[in-house]
Amino acid sequence: MRDPGPAPDARQAASELLRLWTAAAERAFAGSAHQPDIYLRTTRLVGAVAQRLRESGRGLEPLVVAWAEHRELVRRVVESSELLTSDGLDVEAVAGAAFAMRYREALEEVTLDDRLAALAQAAPGAGWLVLEESGYRPGDPFVPYRRLEVDPATGRALLVTTRPDETFTACVHTVERGRIDLETGRLASGEPGDGGHVLHEAASAEEREVWVTRLKDS
C-alpha cells in the first residue's frame, strides 16, 4: 500500500528548506567552471549523496529528517568510496546541492502518490475527477492556473492551464489531452491512436471550459 503522502508540516519544512538548498547548489558549482578537477569531484560527491538520500526512503519526510545531520551524511558518503573526497570542497554547498536534487525527485513521488490515492478513493462510476487544481480559475496573466482531471475508469486525462499572452494583459487558456498511467500516476501527453500531442487554445475561461466538456464527451 502506498504512503498517502507527507504530513503538511513535512511539506512546509521541505518547501522552506528548498531556498537554502537551492542557494547552496548554486554556490557548489559557481566557482568550479574553470576548475575541472573541482567540478568533477563536486559533481561526483553530489551524485553520491543524492543516491544515499534516495536509499533513505520515498517522499519528503526522509529528506527533512536527514538534513538535521547533513554534514555527517556527507562524511559517511565520502568514507564509503575511495573515489570520493571532500578535500577543498564546500561541504555545506555539496549537501545543499544533493538535497535540492533529491527534493525535485521526492516532490514528484509525492505528486504521483497523491494522484493514485485520489484515484483509489474515487467511487465507482463517479466520472471525471479533479486530481490537482491551483491558481486563479478565471484567468490572470500574473497568476497561472493549472487543473488536472482524469477519468478513473480509463485513465483519460485533461490538463487545463493558463499563461500570459505576449502583452501580459490577458491570458491564453489551454486544454491538453493526455493519459494517466493508473499503475504509476504518471501523466503522458496525447492518447494512443490520436496522433500524439493535442493542445487546444482559447481566449477566455468560458471558451476553455467548452473545450473541456467537448473533449470529455468525445
Rank of each mutant, 00 (worst) to 15 (best):
V46G: 07
E109F: 10
A13Y: 00
Y103L: 01
E55T: 01
L73N: 13
R19H: 08
H197A: 14
R163C: 01
A117V: 11
A202H: 07
G139M: 09
D181C: 15
A123K: 14
R41Q: 02
V65R: 08
D151E: 07
L182V: 07
L112P: 00
A120P: 00
A203S: 15
S189Y: 14
F142E: 15
D181N: 15
R11C: 11
A203W: 11
Y145P: 00
E132K: 02
H70D: 03
S56V: 07
E176G: 04
E132T: 02
L53E: 01
E92Y: 05
E108H: 06
S189M: 13
D90W: 06
L187S: 03
A153K: 00
D165C: 10
E108F: 03
R102S: 04
L20S: 09
A93K: 08
L215H: 11
V212G: 14
G59K: 10
E133K: 01
K216Y: 03
L84R: 05
A120Y: 01
T43M: 03
G59C: 12
V78W: 12
R2L: 15
V74D: 08
D113A: 15
D87R: 06
R44I: 02
R71N: 12
G47I: 11
Y103N: 02
T169D: 09
A188D: 08
I180N: 13
H34W: 06
A123Y: 02
P124M: 04
A153Y: 00
F168K: 12
P6D: 07
H173G: 07
F29Q: 07
A66C: 05
R156T: 10
A28T: 05
R2P: 15
A106L: 12
H34S: 08
E133R: 02
A123P: 03
D90S: 05
A203M: 11
P144K: 08
A66L: 07
R27I: 14
V160I: 11
L131V: 05
S81Q: 06
D194L: 09
V65K: 03
V77T: 11
G125Q: 00
E72T: 15
V65D: 05
T42Q: 08
Q51Y: 13
A24Q: 04
A14E: 09
Y39A: 13
A7K: 07
M1C: 07
G59M: 12
V212K: 13
E79W: 06
E69Y: 12
R58S: 10
G185R: 09
P141T: 06
R41C: 01
G196C: 06
V46S: 06
D165P: 05
R71K: 14
E209F: 05
W67P: 02
T184Q: 02
A68K: 04
Q12F: 12
D194R: 09
A202S: 10
S189I: 09
V160G: 00
L73H: 13
Q51F: 14
